[in-house]
Design a protein around this nucleic acid. Structure first.
Lengths: 196, 196
DNA sequence: TGGAGATGTTACCGGTCGGTAACAATATGT
DNA sequence: ACATATTGTTACCGACCGGTAACATCTCCA
């Protein structure tokens, strides 16, 4: 029995196993709460190998967040494929997907936003990743809203964006019951209020 | 020179000095980032005295958050005094005050929400304080919206509440430029959309 | 088969974590 | 002046933190 390296022990190179273990532990338990020893144990490797691939824990954190951001950005190509040439449908599907995700049971907030709260030093390597991703997301929503013919696309994008960001922290701090449905109603109302 | 016990060294009893130092350090640097040694140093006392007044660091954290919650709740009596018998004005003033606060320079998010993110264990003593305060705040906004004659007061309260919660995390993760003015515009639009 | 490069093992570093024991100094009120 | 309760001091505890040196083992390809 055992080989209890929980998840990603098989066949992946150690760098990937470390990243996978870090993603799981950092997200679920918090970046500051997890030490490198816990990561290498779950990754089925050792500290020396970790430090041969990452200059420091901080750089491991930065790469963890970069992958989270890249993974989150994949939604834009998905959206374009699901609703080609229909920016309004893309906008509504985006908000619905994000609402569903924010209110799902295993959700523990946005990994990027949580990291910004856990790491208040503005010059931490992770903070640049967070700023870039959040600004990029906001820009894409503004573009979508404009392409969908919304009046005041920037204002609508801010409303939807802040609403989701608030939902992700609220899901953690108070709970998730009924949050998804309420979110969708609010988002739909805001989109409706911005149609010409 | 010195007596560099930065702030609250003079005349306050050590318990209050500890709480004051903890509030400052926990809020600005993060709960997990600050150790008890840093707190007692800034409070101008020592670890033994801290542990004579608090059973553990976790209970100090819980009391820190209780005081933050109580301090935040003082806005409700302020609001009633500033706009007696005018729930609509109270609602709008509440949102404006919260917007100003969320976008001010020294703001580092909501102390309660940040704590929930820093402490993922659902049974941490701090988490009950957070849940209670957030639910209480939401209830008060709902009541205000209902008293102000809003259609769907619960939905409006959720919109305003989540918008602010999102703004407080966004202020940290990306920045504060222009956030206050944009927030007020959004809040006013939402309130206007819920008037009969 | 051999040799290079990646990985694993063990032991260690100084520092800090939350928390405590024993004892000395101080304030307070009578 | 004395007893009491509150604080301060020093030293310590085991555990963990991020990070590294030296050396053994493995994989894989020429």
């Amino acid at each position: 029995m055992d080989t209890s390296d929980t998840d990603a022990a098989q066949s992946m190179p150690p760098r990937e196993r470390i990243l996978a273990a870090a993603a799981d532990l950092f997200y679920r338990q918090g970046i500051r709460a997890i030490g490198v020893d816990a990561i290498v144990e779950q990754a089925g490797t050792n500290k020396m190998t970790l430090y041969r691939h990452f200059a420091s824990k901080d750089e491991l954190v930065a790469e963890y967040l970069q992958r989270e951001a890249a993974s989150a950005d994949r939604i834009w190509t998905d959206l374009a494929a699901r609703h080609p040439n229909d920016p309004l449908a893309q906008l509504r599907a985006w908000f619905r997907d994000m609402s569903d995700h924010a209110s799902s049971a295993d959700h523990r907030g946005c990994a990027l936003a949580n990291a910004a709260i856990e790491l208040p030093e503005e010059d931490h390597p992770a903070r640049a990743v967070v700023r870039e991703h959040k600004n990029g997301t906001r820009d894409r929503v503004v573009k979508l809203a404009r392409a969908a013919g919304m009046t005041e696309p920037k204002m609508l994008a801010d409303e939807l964006f802040l609403l989701l960001e608030g939902a992700r922290v609220t899901a953690q701090s108070v709970g998730r019951e009924g949050l998804g449905a309420r979110l969708v109603r609010m988002g739909e109302a805001m989109i409706a209020a911005h149609r010409g």
